[in-house]
Simulated assay, not measured.
Amino acid sequence: MDLFSRSWTALRAAVAGLPDPAFGQPSGCAGWLVRDLVCHLVIDAQDVLITLATPADAEPTRDAVTYWDRVEAPTGDDPLDALIVRLAAAYEEPWLLKFHLDDVGSAAGRAAVLADPEGRVGTRGQVLTVDDYLSAYVLEWTLHHLDLIAHLPDVAGPPAEGLSRSRAMVEQILGAALPASFSDTDALLIGTGRRAANDAETAEIADLRAKLPLYLG
């Protein structure tokens, strides 16, 4: 839960420090500008609040790793993705997006700190412990932090602990380790299809060709 808080705080701080022109730059999410990604983070924060307020009595059906499903490569045709683009455009001024993310995001962060880690919550038709649910979101925050800075090299990246934990989760989902020569950042970018591997990297992941890239939803 502490890593959830550190990862989420770092991501929100990175957004808060963005200059206005950065919101019109492309993000690491195909088809999304930075403003679209930030709007998605607002939705994510709302989801965290909703889930933490949805207690469940049943036994857990997923954990932090199995929370994630493998999905097809994004095409840009998903109705929710299109809605987020329209919502982001409706904000008009970057400061409005910053304000909304700070407002809802801070509330989500406080709710996470106050939640009982051993409690159970329901989301997406599944039951998880609070600890597992928040741990799953470390991967979400870390990947989206990398998406945020994809074309903004002067913006600080995600915490090293979040990168390391997220890499471990991706490798667990894959059922295989990514090359030790890959940094945690490169392992995540290549492993999730956010960056194409160069020739040398492609040779190192030849045995994983059938499993990569990993798209999660």
Results as ranks from 00 to 15, higher is better:
residue 1 M to Y: 10
residue 1 M to F: 11
residue 2 D to C: 02
residue 3 L to E: 11
residue 3 L to P: 02
residue 7 S to D: 10
residue 7 S to W: 04
residue 8 W to T: 08
residue 9 T to W: 00
residue 10 A to I: 01
residue 12 R to F: 00
residue 13 A to F: 00
residue 15 V to W: 02
residue 16 A to L: 06
residue 16 A to W: 05
residue 17 G to V: 05
residue 19 P to R: 12
residue 23 F to Y: 11
residue 24 G to T: 08
residue 26 P to W: 06
residue 30 A to W: 05
residue 30 A to V: 12
residue 31 G to C: 07
residue 32 W to Q: 02
residue 34 V to N: 05
residue 35 R to T: 08
residue 37 L to I: 06
residue 41 L to M: 14
residue 41 L to W: 06
residue 42 V to E: 10
residue 43 I to A: 14
residue 44 D to R: 03
residue 44 D to I: 11
residue 45 A to V: 02
residue 49 L to N: 08
residue 50 I to A: 15
residue 52 L to I: 11
residue 56 A to T: 12
residue 56 A to Y: 09
residue 60 P to Q: 14
residue 62 R to G: 03
residue 63 D to P: 04
residue 64 A to S: 15
residue 64 A to V: 06
residue 64 A to W: 06
residue 68 W to R: 04
residue 69 D to R: 14
residue 69 D to I: 05
residue 70 R to M: 07
residue 71 V to H: 10
residue 71 V to F: 09
residue 74 P to L: 14
residue 76 G to S: 10
residue 77 D to K: 14
residue 80 L to N: 13
residue 82 A to Y: 03
residue 86 R to V: 13
residue 87 L to E: 10
residue 88 A to K: 00
residue 91 Y to G: 03
residue 91 Y to K: 01
residue 92 E to T: 11
residue 93 E to Y: 01
residue 101 L to P: 00
residue 104 V to T: 09
residue 105 G to H: 01
residue 105 G to Q: 02
residue 107 A to M: 13
residue 108 A to L: 10
residue 108 A to R: 06
residue 109 G to A: 12
residue 110 R to L: 14
residue 113 V to F: 07
residue 113 V to N: 10
residue 114 L to V: 00
residue 115 A to F: 09
residue 116 D to G: 04
residue 116 D to I: 03
residue 119 G to W: 05
residue 119 G to K: 07
residue 122 G to Y: 04
residue 122 G to T: 09
residue 123 T to F: 14
residue 123 T to K: 10
residue 123 T to L: 14
residue 124 R to E: 15
residue 130 V to E: 13
residue 136 A to H: 10
residue 137 Y to C: 06
residue 137 Y to V: 01
residue 138 V to S: 03
residue 138 V to I: 11
residue 139 L to Q: 10
residue 140 E to W: 06
residue 142 T to F: 03
residue 142 T to V: 11
residue 147 D to Y: 01
residue 147 D to P: 01
residue 148 L to M: 08
residue 149 I to N: 00
residue 149 I to A: 02
residue 150 A to Q: 10
residue 150 A to M: 09
residue 151 H to T: 13
residue 153 P to M: 07
residue 157 G to H: 04
residue 157 G to W: 01
residue 158 P to G: 09
residue 162 G to F: 05
residue 162 G to W: 04
residue 163 L to H: 03
residue 163 L to E: 12
residue 164 S to C: 12
residue 166 S to Y: 10
residue 171 E to S: 12
residue 171 E to A: 12
residue 171 E to Y: 12
residue 174 L to K: 09
residue 176 A to K: 02
residue 178 L to G: 05
residue 179 P to I: 05
residue 184 D to Y: 05
residue 184 D to P: 01
residue 188 L to F: 09
residue 188 L to G: 04
residue 188 L to Y: 06
residue 190 I to T: 00
residue 191 G to I: 00
residue 192 T to I: 07
residue 192 T to G: 08
residue 192 T to F: 10
residue 198 N to T: 04
residue 198 N to W: 01
residue 198 N to I: 00
residue 201 E to Q: 14
residue 202 T to G: 15
residue 205 I to D: 01
residue 205 I to G: 01
residue 205 I to Y: 00
residue 206 A to Q: 13
residue 209 R to G: 03
residue 210 A to Q: 13
residue 210 A to P: 00
residue 212 L to F: 04
residue 214 L to M: 10
residue 215 Y to C: 07
